[in-house]
Simulated scan of single mutants.
Amino acid sequence: MQLEINKESLPVYEALASEVRLHIIQLLSKNKLNIKELSEALGISSPIVTKHVKKLEVAGIIRTEKIPGKSGLQRISILKVDCIEINFPAKISQSYATYETSVPVGHFTNYHVVPTCGIATTEDIVGTLDDPRFFMDPKRVDARILWFTQGFIEYKSPNFLREEDELQQIEISLELASEAPLSNDNWPSDITFSLNGLELGTWVSPGDYADKRGKFTPDWWPPIINQYGLLKTLRITSHGTYMDDELLSKMTIHDINTESDVWNLKMEVKEDASNIGGVTIFGREFGNHNQDILFKIYYL
Results as ranks from 00 to 15, higher is better:
1 M>T: 15
5 I>C: 06
5 I>Q: 11
7 K>Q: 12
10 L>W: 12
13 Y>G: 13
16 L>N: 07
18 S>Y: 08
20 V>Y: 00
22 L>T: 11
23 H>C: 06
25 I>C: 08
28 L>A: 03
33 L>T: 10
34 N>I: 05
37 E>A: 09
39 S>M: 01
44 I>Y: 00
45 S>Q: 09
48 I>P: 05
48 I>V: 13
52 H>I: 01
56 L>E: 14
57 E>Y: 00
60 G>T: 02
60 G>F: 02
62 I>P: 05
68 P>F: 07
76 I>R: 14
78 I>S: 09
80 K>E: 14
83 C>M: 11
84 I>T: 13
85 E>S: 13
85 E>I: 01
86 I>E: 04
89 P>A: 03
90 A>K: 15
91 K>S: 13
95 S>L: 09
97 A>F: 02
104 P>G: 04
106 G>P: 07
108 F>A: 14
113 V>L: 02
113 V>A: 12
115 P>M: 04
115 P>C: 11
116 T>F: 00
116 T>D: 13
117 C>G: 09
117 C>M: 03
120 A>T: 10
120 A>F: 01
122 T>A: 13
126 V>F: 10
130 D>Q: 13
130 D>F: 00
131 D>E: 11
132 P>F: 00
137 D>C: 02
142 D>N: 14
145 I>F: 01
145 I>T: 10
150 Q>M: 12
161 L>F: 01
162 R>I: 09
166 E>L: 10
168 Q>C: 06
169 Q>F: 00
173 S>V: 05
173 S>P: 05
176 L>M: 09
182 L>N: 10
184 N>W: 02
186 N>M: 03
186 N>T: 15
188 P>E: 00
188 P>M: 11
195 L>T: 06
196 N>M: 02
199 E>R: 12
201 G>F: 00
201 G>D: 01
202 T>R: 04
203 W>D: 14
208 D>V: 05
208 D>H: 09
209 Y>H: 08
213 R>F: 07
214 G>L: 07
219 D>I: 08
220 W>F: 14
222 P>V: 02
225 I>F: 01
227 Q>H: 07
230 L>I: 11
230 L>G: 04
231 L>M: 07
233 T>A: 08
233 T>V: 07
239 H>W: 04
240 G>V: 05
242 Y>V: 05
245 D>N: 15
247 L>E: 13
247 L>T: 08
250 K>P: 03
254 H>C: 06
258 T>W: 00
263 W>M: 01
264 N>I: 12
267 M>R: 10
268 E>T: 08
269 V>F: 01
273 A>I: 06
274 S>Y: 09
274 S>R: 15
278 G>F: 00
281 I>L: 11
285 E>T: 14
286 F>M: 14
286 F>W: 11
289 H>L: 08
294 L>I: 12
297 I>D: 04
298 Y>S: 11
